[in-house]
Each structure stands twice: as C-alpha cells, then as structure tokens.
C-alpha cells in the first residue's frame, strides 16, 4: 500500500503544484522518485515531528497542500498538540500520513505499533480520518481527501495485498461491504479487511451468514451506513489492529447505542500494551486474537455455536 500511495502522491504533485511533501527522515526506497522529480517540494525536515507539523501549518495557511510523512506513531502521537493547535484549530488542509497501521512494524516492537492513532485523532473534531484497506483504495482515498479544506489523518499500511472484491472503492462517510449475510457482520478497520473476509468465510462454513463491512472513512463518520448494516444482523464483531477503546469497536458501540440498534457487539482488538512482543504482523495478529480463526471463534462463542 505504501508504494502505491507514494506513486499516487507523486502523480498528484505533477498535477497540483501546491503539493509539498515533508518527511521526518523516513521513507527510504519510498520517496526517492518524488524527491528527484520535485526537489523544491520535497523536504526532509529531520527527526523533528513537532516542527514538521508546525511548518505544515505555516505552509497550508499560505495556500500550499503539505503532506507530512512518518511512522504512524511518530506522526500522530509526538506532535499531537501541534496537530490540535495547528491544522485543526486553524482549519487548514494539512495531510498527516502515518505509515504502519497497527502491527505492520511487527519486528520493531511496541514503540512502532500504531495502537491508538485512530483513537487520539477521533478525540479531535474537524480532522478527517482515513484508513485504507488496500493499495487501490489508498490511491482512491488520496484523490478524495486531497481537495478537503480541513486537515486529514491518513493511516497507511505497509503490505501490498489486495482486498478481494473491494476493487478500490472508497467513499468519504461510507463503508464498503463484501457479502450480504444476515446473521453476523464483521466490521473491519482498514487493513484488517482481508482477515475479516477470511473470518467471514470460516463463519459461513459453520453456517453463519456473514457480511463484512470495511470502515476506511472513520471521519466523516460512516454511522448512517453502519447503522443500516447493523440493523440487519444479530451480531457485530469489530476487528481492528488498534486498542479496542477509541477505535472502531468504540465507533460501532456508539452507533448501536445512539441508533438504538438491536445487535450484540464483540470487539476484537488489542487490550493490553504488547510489551516485549515482536514478530511478523501475522504472528502478532495470531497472538493478539486478530487472525481469521480467532475472529471467527469470537463470533461463534457469542452466538453460542462454538
């Protein structure tokens, strides 16, 4: 996804001379084409994320479209107050691009896992939050958010895998569904879509007709479309490479409560800080209850069919 996003942003910079790319000294083998093509509009600001967001605030106020790139934890958490008092307070089109959704940086350890980036951004009004599920959707989402007048947080995955059946569809404020089973709906945040689809297949084999709802636009909120899907199911299982509090587990709980939906909720996500736990993203998902088997088991237990 990262490579596709970088290519798409480079193409966007060809069309729109307002695009400026700032990186906090990250993006080896990612941004070289952009840097060679647009040397004046590529700025490695060094390992200084607070300054990066401050710079972007000044650039955007003057009419430019700064994209700020770093690993998701460093892009979202270190400069958080600068994001709040800069682009959010001033309503400026700064794009914060956090790479490494959830456990993508598996071997690097917990400092590199983005486990609360969506939660902290959800705590702020007036910033769009987009977590694409695959490369094609990331490209589509970039096009959609580019012209937004306010700030955007983009949570970009590292893996190249494509979500079968998604075909790059993306709508701000919408969800994308795969399948139309009425027993359960598995709601996946961005890059967890493929695991959710495999879990839905396992559930169908156990006789549970399942819909997968992919949430890639966290804000604008997909509450209305989520409500429609949840109304038709007995059980919702949320799946996110993120802490369970503040992400889409919380989002779906809010939708169920505020729309008065009669639907049981099970939240699959991370509940404790994974100290001293490293490994491949797939290994970590297995350990943390986020692989397809664990998701399906959680659903079956809730339906008392396990």
């Amino acid at each position: 996804m990262r490579a596709a996003f970088a290519s798409a942003l480079t193409r966007l910079a060809e069309e729109d001379e307002r695009v400026v790319l700032l990186t906090g000294d990250l993006g080896f083998m990612v941004w070289e084409p952009f840097a060679e093509r647009f040397p004046d509009r590529f700025l490695n600001v060094g390992v200084a994320e607070q300054n990066m967001i401050g710079l972007a605030t000044g650039l955007a106020e003057a009419g430019l479209r700064p994209y700020c790139y770093s690993i998701a934890t460093f892009a979202s958490l270190r400069p958080y107050e600068f994001v709040r008092n800069g682009p959010i307070l001033h309503q400026l089109p700064v794009r914060i691009v956090g790479v490494g959704a959830g456990l993508d940086y598996g071997h690097n350890g917990v400092t590199h896992y983005a486990l609360e980036d969506v939660a902290v951004m959800r705590a702020q009004p007036d910033i769009s939050i987009v977590a694409p599920a695959d490369p094609d959707q990331a490209v589509a989402a970039l096009r959609e958010v580019h012209e937004l007048p306010g700030p955007t947080y983009l949570r970009i995955g590292k893996e190249p895998g494509v979500v079968p059946g998604l075909e790059g569809r993306f709508r701000l404020g919408g969800i994308e569904t795969i399948g139309d089973g009425g027993d359960a709906v598995v709601v996946a945040l961005g890059t967890m879509a493929r695991d959710a689809i495999r879990a839905a297949e396992l559930l169908r084999e156990s006789g549970v007709d399942t819909t997968v709802a992919i949430v890639s636009s966290v804000r604008p909120s997909p509450a209305e479309e989520l409500s429609d899907v949840l109304q038709r199911a007995d059980l919702a299982v949320t799946v996110e490479a993120h802490y369970v509090d503040g992400g889409i587990g919380s989002l779906v709980a809010e939708v169920i409560a505020e729309h008065g939906v009669d639907c049981r909720l099970v939240r699959c996500g991370i509940r404790e800080m994974p100290r001293g736990l490293t490994g491949s993203p797939d290994y970590l998902k297995g350990r943390l209850g986020l692989d397809a088997e664990s998701i399906a088991d959680a659903a079956l237990r809730a339906l008392e069919r396990a």
């Binding site: 607070q50 000044g58 700064p66």
Partner: peptide, 19 residues
C-alpha cells in the same frame, strides 16, 4: 501553547520562498 510559534513562522517563511 509555548513553543509552537517558531515552527509555524518557519513554515510561513518557507511558503514565501516556495511561492
């Protein structure tokens, strides 16, 4: 919030150069 003005002003100065 102290410490935020210089980064923003540097961005404003950089914008002037780019533009």
């Amino acid at each position: 919030s102290l410490g935020q003005g210089l980064p923003v002003a540097a961005g404003a100065a950089l914008a002037a150069r780019l533009q």
